[in-house]
Design a protein around this nucleic acid. Structure first.
Length: 279
DNA sequence: ATTTTCCCCTGCCGGC
DNA sequence: TGCCGGCAGGGGAAAA
């Protein structure tokens, strides 16, 4: 569910509220949430540690603790983090874990489908930077993401350009919604082979990826289904989506009926008028 | 090496 | 009404 803009929204809210706090205890209600670690081992490791900052890499949230350990969180499809000042979040059937802090506040992790995970990246990990680099590529809103860099990442690839955008090891943080919207804005069909894009198309795609992700952050994320931010509020990016979830409706730019197709095993929305199909 | 398929899990929706 | 298949913002392992 949450893509880069949703995770960044949550990161900002948590960083503001829990940085400097000390973890009183970690309670795990669903062991699967911390597997393959055990609730007991993880809880013992983080208890009493101070949260130095809350950072993000792609769709990964990181609670950086004193001593160098990092408590990593990935929300996957239906995960949510909810902060409450007095620790009494609303009763939740899907609550999987809870972080209790020294000021009486708490962060609850909720997750209907149980794909979300919390795990520790230990300070003694041989190379913390390599750990994250193995999972996540360039940050699309960072200085390393340029049209030229995007071209290098896509060069020679025969997979559909949308599949490449969804590959977190190339560009980190783009998910199904923002891939559709960026490709539409760039007027590039999602089935085009990634390596076939020309210089102008790469420039348009680079600009569109950044533009749509920024719009997502400015909107507080897209609350299409279950997404809520860290204070249980909805975002408004769903109101700005041009094609995603709009199959059967006219394209806002050319009036052609928007189609739903399947690309990289994901539902994909495309305007066949604006985004000329390959071949 | 790259790309595709399957799987993890729960809930919902449409078709029969 | 009830059952069944398919699908849902994710990524990792295994297979091709």
């Amino acid at each position: 569910m949450p893509e880069l803009p949703e995770v960044e929204t949550i990161r900002r809210q948590l960083d503001e509220r829990i940085t400097g706090r000390v973890i009183r205890r970690l309670r795990v209600f669903d062991p699967m949430t911390v597997s393959p670690d055990t609730p007991r081992r993880l809880a013992r490791r983080v208890a009493g540690r101070r949260i130095e900052r809350v950072s993000r890499r792609g769709k990964y949230l990181r609670l950086e603790l004193d001593g160098g350990d990092t408590l990593a969180v990935h929300l996957r499809m239906t995960g949510q983090l909810h902060w409450s000042a007095n620790g009494d979040g609303p009763p939740e059937p899907y609550r999987r874990a809870r972080l209790e802090l020294d000021d009486g506040s708490a962060v609850d992790m909720r997750d209907m489908r149980r794909f979300g995970r919390i795990w520790l990246v230990p300070a003694e990990h041989p190379d913390a930077a390599a750990y994250w680099d193995a999972r996540t590529g360039v940050e699309p809103l960072g200085p390393g993401f340029t049209a030229a860099r995007l071209g290098e990442l896509l060069a020679g690839r025969r997979a559909p350009v949308k599949a490449a955008l969804l590959d977190q090891r190339l560009v980190a943080g783009v998910g199904n919604i923002y891939a559709d919207e960026a490709l539409y804005q760039a007027r590039i069909h999602p089935l085009r082979p990634a390596g076939d894009l020309g210089p102008d198309e790469l420039r348009r795609l680079h600009r569109a990826v950044r533009d749509r992700l920024k719009a997502g952050i400015d909107s507080g994320g897209a609350s299409i289904d279950r997404y809520r931010d860290a204070i249980n509020a909805r975002g408004s990016m769903q109101d700005l989506l041009a094609v995603h979830l709009h199959a059967g409706e006219p394209c806002p730019r050319c009036g052609t009926t928007i189609e739903k197709i399947r690309v990289a095993q994901r539902g994909t929305y495309v305007c066949p008028g604006c985004q000329p199909p390959p071949r």
